[in-house]
Write a protein that binds this DNA or RNA. Structure first.
Length: 434
RNA sequence: GUGGGUGUAGCUCAGCUGGUAGAGCUCUGGAUUGUGGUUCCAGCCGUCGCGGGUUCGAUCCCCGUCACUCACCCCA
């Protein structure tokens, strides 16, 4: 106290134990499930040369225009804290010649992303994503499988009430004609568009469809729809994606306005939203980006991917009990002698080596106070080591819930406790199922 | 970058047209000798975000500033 507090940077969070447990659960499930679909992890750097993002995400995107954490390193090179994962993934795919392995490659990543935006509910300057990318196939089954993985993951971690929105953005063959039609349409209602969209018409007219400004939404209500402009290839591709999703009862809504903020998307685009999230309601988003690998100097390679926002996912999981980890066993000492202190130290260590989650009282004091610490720790069993125990060479084991106590020889203690703990956990699981 | 809301003990908050602050929880100690959770008793903790102004006097009024928060833009 007294010294001026050093606080965290705006828009970042400390994830405390009550929450970090959930994070661990979410990440573990992701790893397991993604592996089930034959994805492998790639650990990417959190910063890259600025061109990696500037080139791929699109110069006109908000991310590149105003949201990147860009700085010069000591050599004067411009570097950027990654605002998303796909660009790094593609860079790594090309740089490591992963296309040389042939066939379809599936990778996932997980970690922090950085965007210099004004924070608000569900939006942070450092946030975390779990992302998946598939390279090497334009088969609509890949699109469907990818979306299915996403949906399976989200329901698997326990979030409900989600909406999947789906659209096709066309390809270099058909998008230009749509873009022209849309631009012509927007020109006729210039006055009704917001400043932002008016400025974007020439550079990226599709974004007007996505704009949340009421006047824009009204203005684009009967704008041309991309679906009417898809080429034969894109049309059949999209139809197949939908059919496959339907075959697995994946509920989705077609949304011709879904264009996504990043420029690299082609064909399939999708987003998962929840009405329980506030204004920033997208929990995951993704799409196909068939031109990006080539853009990075690789061979022409079809690819598709998605990213899930972990913070937003966790928000939807909140409300359950706060389960902080508690040790199974807590060791206390009765008596001030060094012998007791030594024995407590030894017992705690022996239990841990035996694989038992154990902690102990520190700082000595009366048994009563140490029992309070034992209680507060949440441990189900307390091991009492005192002068009496030392002379008899047995530990006193107290079951906290019932208050019953047992005398257990020290050399049998680890065995006794691990059996007891296993039985209790078994019992709790059975109880839980019932 | 723009707008709204909030800023009082570790936490959640109270504080009536302005008279320099409380409550609950937490925490610490105690209720006789080696036994926790309940109960009872006692105790600690505040530059009322910061700076200025009005006033005899401001936590409460005014101005500024900072922080947090929500929303716009956009996205995870």
């Amino acid at each position: 106290m007294g010294k001026e507090l050093i606080t965290r940077v705006k828009g970042v969070k400390d994830i405390l134990p009550a929450q970090s447990i959930r994070w661990l659960e979410v990440e573990s499930l992701a790893r397991l499930l993604f592996s089930t679909y034959n994805y492998q992890e790639i650990r990417l750097p959190v910063f890259e040369k600025t061109e990696v993002f500037a080139r791929s995400i699109g110069e006109t995107s908000d991310i590149v225009e105003k949201e990147m954490y860009t700085f010069q390193d000591r050599g004067g090179e411009s570097l950027t804290l990654r605002p998303e994962g796909t660009a790094s993934m593609v860079r790594a795919y090309v740089e490591n010649s992963l296309y040389g392995r042939g066939g379809v490659q599936k990778y996932y990543y997980l970690g922090p992303m950085f965007r210099a935006e004004r924070p608000q509910a569900g939006r942070f300057r450092q946030f975390h994503q779990i992302g998946a990318e598939v390279f090497g196939s334009d088969d609509p089954a890949v699109d469907a499988e990818t979306i299915l993985l996403l949906v399976t993951f989200l329901t698997g971690v326990g979030v409900g009430g989600l909406e999947v929105r789906l659209n096709s953005l066309g390809c270099p063959a058909c998008r230009p004609s749509y873009r022209a039609a849309l631009t012509a349409f927007l020109q006729t209602r210039l006055t009704r568009l917001c400043d932002n969209c008016r400025g974007r018409i020439g550079r990226n007219p599709l974004r007007a469809l996505d704009c949340k400004s009421p006047s824009c939404q009204e203005a684009v209500k009967d704008a041309p729809v991309i679906g009417d402009h898809l080429c034969e290839g894109c049309r059949t591709h999209f139809g197949r994606v939908r059919a496959l999703l339907e075959s697995q009862q994946v509920a989705y809504a077609l949304d011709p306005r879904l264009v996504r903020g990043l420029d690299y998307y082609t064909r399939t685009a999708f987003e998962v939203t929840s009405s329980r999230l506030g204004a920033q309601n997208a929990i995951a988003g993704g799409g196909r980006y068939n031109g990006l690998v080539e853009e990075f100097g690789g061979p022409p390679t079809s690819a598709i991917g998605f990213a899930v926002g972990i913070e937003r996912l966790i928000t939807l999981l909140e409300g359950g009990p706060d389960l902080e980890h508690a040790p199974d066993v807590f060791v206390v000492g009765a008596g001030e002698s060094v012998l007791v202190d030594d024995k407590v130290f030894e017992v705690a260590q022996n239990l841990r080596v035996a694989g038992i989650f154990a902690d102990r009282a520190f700082g000595g004091g009366k048994l009563k106070n140490q029992m309070k610490k034992a209680d507060k720790s949440g441990a189900m069993v307390t091991v009492i080591v005192g002068d009496d125990e030392l002379t008899k060479n047995v530990a006193t084991v107290r079951i906290m819930k019932t208050g019953e106590q047992h005398s257990v020889p020290f050399d049998e203690l680890a065995q006794w406790l691990s059996e007891f703990v296993n039985n209790e956990e078994q019992f709790e699981d059975d109880d839980f199922d019932g």
